[in-house]
Design a protein around this nucleic acid. Structure first.
Length: 238
RNA sequence: GUAGUUAUGAG
């Protein structure tokens, strides 16, 4: 286990996944524990080499290492990238029912199905989570799924519902809802939300929020306003 | 020690 940990430290310093892989393969099998499998699989997912990640996941199973929550999160992410609904469903089917209701796993499922174009399955995964545990990250994933389907109004509705049900939005919630508005021809609604940002204590208004607002105005055809805001932003950013 | 949402732009 100590050796596995040392190799993991090396992974972080590796600029290339290939180097990490060499280190991983050099480990004796008894030192390849769950965490080192998870680390190498997620390195591939993050590097965009998703079919390699899936292949390692299969090999892990062959070697008798039982996947946990972190494994599935990396693999679900790989499935999302490959965008094959069939593959998504296979991996989803391997999840313990107990794990499916985990908030972090549910978020990965929502995101995966959203990115694969299956809004119904995304919604089902959302609904399968315990309502009391829903946090802004999960809500944001669901909002993004609607946006990806071109359902801006639904995305906006969900953003409001999140707050009505007592979940306080975070920075990303605003990025998500502003982009929903911008892609869904909901410029007025989006602008109102942007203007309201300052009233949310604890939410730090960033350059990214301004970029979203500029995008929103630009797509709505309000080019002068977009340009003005972009100029103002540069001043405020310093 | 590994793990969830992220628009625009850039590559």
């Amino acid at each position: 286990p100590q050796l596995g940990t040392a190799v993991l430290r090396a992974y972080r310093g590796c600029r290339s996944v290939a180097d990490a892989r060499k280190a991983f393969e050099a480990l004796a099998e008894e030192h390849r524990d769950l965490v080192s499998w998870n680390a190498i699989i997620s390195s591939y997912t993050q590097d965009g080499q998703c079919s390699v990640a899936i292949g390692l996941f299969q090999r892990m199973d062959l070697e008798g290492v039982k996947p946990d929550k972190a494994t599935f999160i990396a693999v679900l992410d790989a499935c999302a990238d490959i965008a094959s609904l069939a593959l998504c469903e296979i991996v989803h089917g391997l999840l313990d029912p107990e794990l499916q209701t985990d908030i972090v796993v549910a978020t990965a499922l929502v995101s995966m199905y959203g990115r694969c174009g299956s809004i119904d399955r995304a919604r089902a995964a959302f609904e399968a989570s315990a309502a009391a545990e829903r946090d802004p990250v999960l809500w944001n994933a669901m909002v993004a799924a609607y946006t990806q389907q071109g359902q801006g109004r639904e995305a906006l509705k969900l953003f409001r519902e999140m707050q009505q049900l007592g979940t306080y939005p975070d920075e990303q919630s605003f990025i998500g809802v502003l982009s929903a508005c911008s892609h869904g021809a909901l410029a007025e609604e989006g602008w109102d939300i942007f203007v309201s940002l300052g009233a949310y204590d604890g939410v730090e208004v960033t350059q990214d929020h301004y970029s979203c607002a500029v995008d929103l105005l630009g797509r709505a055809g309000w080019l002068d306003a977009a340009e003005d805001l972009a100029r103002t932003t540069h001043v405020e950013a310093n």
